[in-house]
Amino acid sequence: MFEITLYHYLVLSLILFAIGFIGIIISKNIIKVLICIEIVMSAINLNFIAFTAYKNYLFLSGMIFALFITAISALQTAIGLVLIYQIYKNKEKITSEEIEELKG
């Protein structure tokens, strides 16, 4: 039907980004927050790869950056899981209301 241009990808990645961020803000379960962070990072990946594919740039820096982003977001998630586990040892369930001790 109609061609899929660059802008479609950009809009898609923005929608994913928004979904991810709203998920971060709304989710009660911290594991869901971590997953939403992953969603956001993948949206950014999509952005980079779309730009590299559709425009004739001299360097393919975008794709390389996408690889790095993937790796690093995995690192972040891993550390997030470690921290959640440490908190989980003291409390039964992890919701965002449970970790409200530091306030004021």
Binding site: F21, I24, I25, S27, V33, S96, E97, L102, K103, G104
Partner: peptide
């Protein structure tokens, strides 16, 4: 500063 992380975000 109500301590809720999602509020901060």
């Amino acid at each position: 500063q109500n301590g809720n992380i999602q509020t901060y975000v």
